[in-house]
Design a protein around this nucleic acid. Structure first.
Lengths: 222, 222
DNA sequence: ATTTTTTTCGACGTTTTATCGGGAAAAATC
DNA sequence: GATTTTTCCCGATAAAACGTCGAAAAAAAT
C-alpha cells in the first residue's frame, strides 16, 4: 500500500509497517528459535529488569546455548530494544481495526488512549518493559525503536489537530502542550498500575482519565 | 523537630529529613572522598546511562581506586539508587523556603510543579538520572529511595485535598486521579525536555502547563 | 549420495564486577 | 611525641558475566 492522500491512513499505515530488523533467516527452525528467544527475553526482562537480567538466563529459558543467542542478537541491549517493536506494531494494527467505525476526533482519541492502557494490561510483561524501562530510557533516542515510539505520540498530535480543525476542540492552544497533557496523564495511570497494580481496574481508570481530560480540553476557555 | 500538629509542616519536614543511609564516616578525608564519588557517579551516569557505566570509570573520574569505591558502596546499583536522595532533599528544602509566603493551595501547587521542573533544569544531570532512569524503574519499589519518591507525589495529593477543603477546587473527584493528571502532565514536559531539550524554555513551558492544568481542575464541572 | 548452505554449540579469551589482606594516614591514648 | 587504635586506601586476585570463533550437526540443494 503506497502513500495515499489521506494523512490519517498514511500515519496508521506507517506505524503498522515499521520494519522489524529482519535477520533474514532461511529455515523454519530459525524462526522458531527466534520466537523462543523473544518469549524468553520478555519473561526474564519483566521479572528481573533489563540490567539485572543475564544473557545466559535468557538463553537457558529459551532452551538454547548462549552462543546461539549471540547469533541472533549482538548484545543484550540490542535484544531489549528490538523486543517491544513487534508488540507495538500489533497494538497499532488492533487500533486500526477498532477505530474504523469512529468519525469524530474525540472518539478516535478516547479509543486510542483507552486501548493503549488496555494493551499494557493485557500484555503486562511487555508493558513493564516498554513503559518502565524502554520509553523513558536515554538510549532510545539512538535506536530504531524511537520511530515506533514517535509514532505513538504522533497519533495523539494528529488527532488533536483534527479535533481543532473540526471544531471539537477550541483553537488557540499549543498542540504539543495539549498532547503532552493527554499522554502524560494517561501514561501516569498506566505506569502506576504497572508498578503497584493500582488502581485495581486499569481499564476503567484509564478510560475515565481519558474521558475526563478530553472533556477538559474540549470545554477549555482560551 | 518532633511531629507537630500541622500535617503540612509534618509532610515537608519528613521529606527534608530522609536519612541518607549514612556510612558513618569519621574522617574529613572520607567525607571528601564520598563527595567525589557522588559527583563522579552523577557525571558518568548522566553521560553513559547507568547500565553502560562502569565502576572503574567512576572510580577513575573520582580519582580513587575501584576497591576504595567498593569501600563506600557495595554495588553499582546501590550507588545509583543512593545518589538521587540528597538532591531530592535539597529540592524539598528549597521548596519549603519558597512556599513559606503562599497561602492558597493553588499557589502552593503551582509553585511546587514549576519548581520541580526548574530544579530538573538546573540539575540536568541529576534530572536525567532521576526522571529517566530511577523514577520509572521497576526496582525502585524495593529500595529506600522509594520513600523520597513517594513524598514527591504525596505533596501533590495533600495540596489537592487542601484545595478541595478550602473550596478552591470542586469536590467530587478522585484525588488520586487528579494528582496523576497534574503530575503526569508536568512530568511529561520535563521528560521531553530532558530527552530532546524541547520545548526550549522549560521554565516557561512547565509553568504554563501547571497553570493550565490547575485552571482546568479548578473550573471543572463535576 | 554428495556437496553446499545454514544453524547450533562447546571451548576459550576478554571485560567488568567484587573481595581480601596488608599497609598508610589520621585520631586517640598515654 | 611516642604508642596504640581506628579509619581509610589500594594492589593483587578471584568470580561472574560478556562476547568470539571454529568445528560439528542439521537442513537444503545439487
Amino acid at each position: 500500500m503506497p502513500a495515499g492522500n489521506d494523512p490519517w491512513e498514511d500515519l496508521l499505515h506507517l506505524a503498522t509497517s515499521r520494519p522489524k530488523r529482519a535477520p533474514d533467516r532461511k529455515q523454519d527452525r530459525s524462526k522458531r528459535t527466534e520466537q523462543q528467544i523473544l518469549n524468553a527475553a520478555l519473561r526474564v526482562f519483566a521479572r528481573d529488569g533489563i540490567s539485572r537480567s543475564r544473557i545466559a538466563d535468557i538463553a537457558a529459558e529459551a532452551g538454547i546455548s548462549t552462543s546461539t543467542l549471540y547469533e541472533y542478537y549482538k548484545s543484550k541491549e540490542d535484544l531489549a530494544y528490538d523486543l517491544p517493536t513487534s508488540h507495538l506494531v500489533t497494538f497499532f494494527e488492533e487500533y486500526k481495526v477498532a477505530v474504523a467505525g469512529k468519525i469524530s476526533a474525540r472518539e478516535k482519541l478516547h479509543l486510542y488512549l483507552s486501548m493503549s492502557a488496555d494493551f499494557a494490561r493485557e500484555h503486562a510483561e511487555w508493558g513493564r518493559l516498554f513503559y518502565l524501562e524502554i520509553w523513558p530510557s536515554v538510549l532510545v533516542s539512538e535506536t530504531e525503536l524511537r520511530h515506533s515510539v514517535n509514532d505513538f505520540a504522533r497519533v495523539v498530535l494528529y488527532l488533536i489537530d483534527e479535533g481543532v480543525r473540526q471544531g471539537e476542540f477550541p483553537a488557540g492552544r499549543n498542540t504539543y502542550e495539549t498532547a503532552s497533557l493527554l499522554l502524560g496523564a494517561v501514561n501516569q495511570v498506566i505506569i502506576t498500575w504497572l508498578l503497584y497494580r493500582r488502581p485495581r481496574n486499569l481499564t476503567k481508570a484509564s478510560a475515565e482519565m481519558a474521558e475526563r481530560v478530553i472533556n477538559m480540553i474540549a470545554n477549555e476557555v482560551v
